[in-house]
Amino acid sequence: MQLQRKDILGLQDMTPEEIGLILETAKSSKDILARPVKKVPILRGKSVCTLFYENSTRTRTSFELAAKIMSADTTSISVAGSSINKGESYKDTLLTLEAMGVDLFVIRHGAGGAAHFAANTVKSHVINAGDGMHEHPTQGLLDMLTILENKGGFDGLKVLLVGDIMHSRVARSNLWGLSKMGAEVRFCGPSTLLPSEIDKLSVKVYTDIDEAIDGVDVVNVLRIQLERMNKGFFPSVSEYANLFGINKNRLRGAKSDVLVMHPGPMNRGIEITPDVADGEFAVITDQVTNGVAVRMALLYLLLGGGGNVAAA
């Protein structure tokens, strides 16, 4: 099977077969990460550009390492402040970089749909590294790879994402990906941070964490953005930690072999207590490793195959 697409914009429109292919390819890519010589020549001569309109050391580094391990050349561009009327337009930035020979763009942008815009603007490949509150497909896939490695499959698994669901592209990508693969997805967060009509999707929605965590196989803890407090979404950090923070005691409600995940960076002591973050159930550093593997797999599947949909 091949990946018949030019771009990776989200998990919403992906088939279970495609997700399965990516995860399988990621597993074998991980093999390379464990070797003394972390370099394969497959993408020699390919040019990958990470174009980031939002800061993210973690995601950017992960993509760059993945590209470099596969011998692609990488260029990073950070656009500080994505405001309009300043500097070059997004469209012109994309067209200029494409004209310089970029084969694949990795794009992080604060605006939902920015990756779609890029995919429609350039003929090069585009991987969405997070667009606004919309999707973060590579985070979704690395979370899924981590679950797959630990649980062997997805069917019937109960996966809880807890925190600021409304503003979370990670929650959305996890929901699409996991529900397609047969897992039961639960969302839990303050009612002010649950997006409108989310309950119409295939997800169980909770505002009581102890109810939500009952019997789950995976708890994926989302980062709470402290600036949300100033916008009136929740009253205080301590109240949030009390009502929604994941601590050892709370974790007892989950299955005895529960996995604890976090997309990072963590606010230790707020959404997750340090003993849980560093505890026996946490697979947070595995997620980071799997992030590189998933990104290698996507680069390979998009750039490494003449039979794939070519960047025309």
Binding site: M1, Q2, T25, K27, S29, I42, G304, G305, G306
Partner: peptide, 11 residues
């Protein structure tokens, strides 16, 4: 790789 499809690879 430029002329052949990228295939599922096992480790």
């Amino acid at each position: 790789y430029a002329t052949r499809p990228a295939r599922t690879v096992s480790a």
